[in-house]
Design a protein around this nucleic acid. Structure first.
Lengths: 238, 238
DNA sequence: CGGATGGTTGACAAGATTCAATCGGAGTGG
DNA sequence: CCACTCCGATTGAATCTTGTCAACCATCCG
C-alpha cells in the first residue's frame, strides 16, 4: 500500500511511538480512524517556525518527534520561552481565537496537524477526547505556575537545577532518555526560558559541574550525578 | 424566610453579584438550583487561610467577594504568589488530587464552596458547566504564561506597570472599580507576585509616580494618569 | 499615648548583566 | 586532507542594578 500524504509521520497511528501518551490515547484503536481522517502529517526543520503569535488559530497539533519551543516576544526583541514541548505533548491548549505564543522547532520535528474546526467537532463527539485535553490543560497550568516560582524566586543556579530536573522528569514520563539528558536547545533558549543571560546560564552549568552534581560530556548532554543534592539546590521545585 | 447556612454569601444565586461572570453563568436560572443544592457559603477574614498546598483537594470554590492570593512556598520561606483571584474567579482549576498552591484571603472574602465529588458529577450532567470551566482554565493558562514573561524578562518598573495595567483590566472585566484601582494587597504581596523585594516595589511605585504615569493618593489606591505611557513602559505586556 | 505594622527612603554590598576575549567543534572550500 | 570560517559556549573584567540592612515615617489600634 502506498504512503498517503496525511499519514502520521511515523506511519499509522497504530504504530505511533506516542500512541499511548498523546491526545489520541483517549481513543480506542477502533475509534482512532476518526482522528486519522482529519489529520495531516507535518515535519519541521530545526529552527523552523510553525506558528507566529497573533495569527488566528486555525490548526492544533500533536508532537510526535523532536522538540518545540513556545515563546512570547517583547517589542524590543526580548523574548520569554514559556515552555518546551516533547513528543506526546499537545499544541494549542491555551488559545482560543489567536495564538498567544510563537512556536518553533528546536530540532527537526514531526507532528500531527488538525484543523481546529474539525478537531472541535471530534472533541464533542468523543467526550474522552475532551477530558484528556482538559487534563492536559490543567497539567500545563500547573507547570506554568511552577515556572512562575522558578522565574520569580530562584537564583540562577537554582533555576538551572530546577530546569534540568524538570526536563529529566518529563523526558522520563514521555519515555525518553532521562539520564544523561540530551539538551536539544541552545544556551540562548535556556536563558530565555529561565529569565537569564547565556553567560549566566553557562556559569551556572560550570558551578553545578564543579560541585559534582552534574557531568557535561559535551554542552548538549547532562548527566545527573547527584540527583538528591541537585534537588536540594532546586529547592525541591519541579 | 430565615437565612439558611448554605445560601450564597450574597443571598440567593439569582441576586448574586457575580451571577453573570462566575462558573454559575453556565447554568440557566432554572438549572441553578442544582448548584445551590451542593453549595455552602463560606466567609474568610483578612489573611485567613483557605487551603494549604499539599492538602487533598476536597472542595472547589467560586469567589463572590473580596480577593484571594494563590501562593507556592519554598522550604526556606521564600514565596511566590502565582495569582490573585477576583470576584467571579474559580478556585481549583489547576489541581487534580492535591492542591499545588496555598490560598489565603487578601481582604475579607465571601465564596461559594462545593464538594469536589458532587461538583464533578454536576459537571458531567451539565456540559456547559464543563465547557465554562475549560474556558476558565485556558484563560488561567494564558495568564500564567503572561506572568512568565513579566517575571522572566521585565525590569522592576516594567513589572509594576504591567501588574497595575493587568489588575486594572481584570477589575474592569469583573465590573469593579478600575481607575483609580484599589490595591487590596500589601507591598509584600506585590513583591512576591512580581519576584521582587518590597523595597524595590516601593521604589518602582515612586518612579512611576515621579514620571507622572500614576498618582498615589495613598499606598492602596493607584490612579492611572497616563495609560498609554504606562503601557509603553510595560512593553505592552498584559 | 505608645506600640505595632506597613511603607518609604538611603547607603552599601552582592550579584547579574554587559562587554570583550577566547575556545572548540562543525561545516566549507580550496 | 587541511586550513579557514562561523557559530555556540565558556571565561574574565568592569559596570550597574537590585537586594540587603538600617533608619525613618505614618497610620492604625489598643
Amino acid at each position: 500500500m502506498p504512503e498517503r500524504a496525511h499519514r502520521p509521520p511515523c506511519g499509522a497511528c497504530a504504530e505511533c511511538g506516542v500512541r499511548t501518551m498523546a491526545v489520541c490515547a483517549a481513543l480506542a484503536d477502533d475509534e482512532i480512524s476518526a482522528l486519522e481522517r482529519i489529520m495531516t502529517a507535518r515535519r519541521l526543520g530545526a529552527d523552523e517556525t510553525l506558528v507566529v503569535e497573533g495569527e488566528t488559530r486555525k490548526r492544533v497539533y500533536s508532537l510526535t518527534e523532536g522538540m518545540l519551543r513556545l515563546s512570547i516576544a517583547l517589542p524590543d526583541g526580548r523574548r520569554q520561552i514559556t515552555g518546551f514541548l516533547l513528543p506526546g505533548d499537545y499544541l494549542g491548549l491555551a488559545d482560543d481565537e489567536v495564538y498567544t505564543a510563537s512556536v518553533e522547532a528546536v530540532v527537526p520535528a514531526a507532528l500531527c496537524s488538525f484543523p481546529v474546526r474539525e478537531m472541535d467537532a471530534l472533541i464533542e463527539t468523543y467526550p474522552r477526547l475532551k477530558d484528556r485535553l482538559f487534563r492536559f490543560t490543567r497539567a500545563a497550568l500547573r507547570q506554568a505556575r511552577e515556572n512562575q516560582v522558578i522565574l520569580g524566586r530562584l537564583a540562577p543556579v537554582e533555576k538551572l537545577a530546577a530546569f534540568l530536573l524538570a526536563l529529566s522528569r518529563r523526558m522520563a514520563e514521555n519515555k525518553l532518555a532521562d539520564n544523561p539528558v540530551p539538551l536539544a536547545m541552545t544556551r540562548a533558549d535556556i536563558a530565555d526560558y529561565l529569565g537569564l543571560t547565556i553567560e549566566t546560564v553557562s556559569r551556572s552549568f560550570t558551578k553545578l559541574r564543579n560541585q559534582g552534581l552534574i557531568r557535561l560530556p559535551d554542552a548538549h548532554l547532562v548527566e545527573i550525578v547527584d540527583r538528591r543534592s541537585l534537588e536540594a539546590v532546586a529547592g525541591t521545585v519541579a
